[in-house]
Simulated scan of single mutants.
Amino acid sequence: MSLEQKINQDIKVSMIAKDNVKLRGLRAIKAAILLAKTEKIQVEELSEDTEIKVLQKLAKQRKESGDIYKNQNRDDLYQIEMEELQVIEEYLPKQLDRSAVEQVIKDIITEVGATSVKEMGKVMAAANQKLAGQADGKTISEVVKSQLS
């Protein structure tokens, strides 16, 4: 079952259960998927990679918006963003903790043979490919910088 089919099914369940919080998050995901499909000319189904990227983008947007609302003391809007973020994260692959990311990057650095920060690009490319959907780019970048310096 594709992500889009699962979302449509969960929207129906949420409507019946009158779970407005989950319904709002699911509708945001559905809108993003439909937008991604229209960007790819006449695509019936998005690849799993593309679906994960769409969800990661939504999660990142919610986190950034939540931070802005928190800084401006808008707890009402912050709460809405965090509720939607929780719904979006349910459909993302399980995120690795920092220590697991550090171990994977350590292995990648050994494979690539990087020794300085100048070779960060090679390590980042391999890390982003290997950790796709399992860690965000900011965390990966921080770990790579700390291990190469």
Rank of each mutant, 00 (worst) to 15 (best):
K130V: 06
N8M: 11
V54I: 14
Q129S: 15
G66D: 05
E4H: 10
L35S: 15
Q147H: 05
Q72W: 03
Q134C: 10
T110Y: 09
Q5K: 13
M15C: 00
D97V: 06
V123K: 03
K22C: 08
D10T: 03
E89A: 02
A127L: 12
E111P: 00
Y91E: 13
L92A: 04
V21S: 11
L85W: 01
D19I: 02
T115H: 04
I109S: 12
Y91R: 10
I16M: 02
V104D: 01
E51F: 09
K118H: 10
K53H: 12
I52E: 02
N128G: 14
L58D: 05
A59D: 04
S149M: 13
T38R: 11
S47G: 15
V143H: 08
D10L: 03
E119V: 09
L96G: 06
L46S: 12
V123T: 07
L35R: 11
E84D: 12
E90W: 00
V144S: 03
E84F: 04
I11E: 00
Q103S: 13
E142T: 08
A59Q: 00
R74D: 14
T50Q: 12
E39P: 00
P93M: 13
I68S: 12
I140V: 13
K106Q: 14
K30W: 04
Q129T: 15
V144A: 06
K106A: 15
E83I: 01
I11S: 00
D76P: 08
G66F: 01
K12Y: 07
E64T: 02
K53C: 12
M120N: 04
E45K: 11
A36G: 08
S47Q: 08
V112Y: 01
A59W: 01
Q9W: 11
A127E: 10
T50C: 10
L34A: 14
L26Q: 05
E4S: 12
A32M: 09
M82R: 08
V13Y: 06
T110N: 11
D67E: 14
K63W: 05
A114M: 01
A125F: 05
K18T: 03
E83S: 02
A100G: 05
S65N: 13
E4V: 13
S65Q: 09
Q86T: 11
K30Y: 05
A100E: 15
S47W: 02
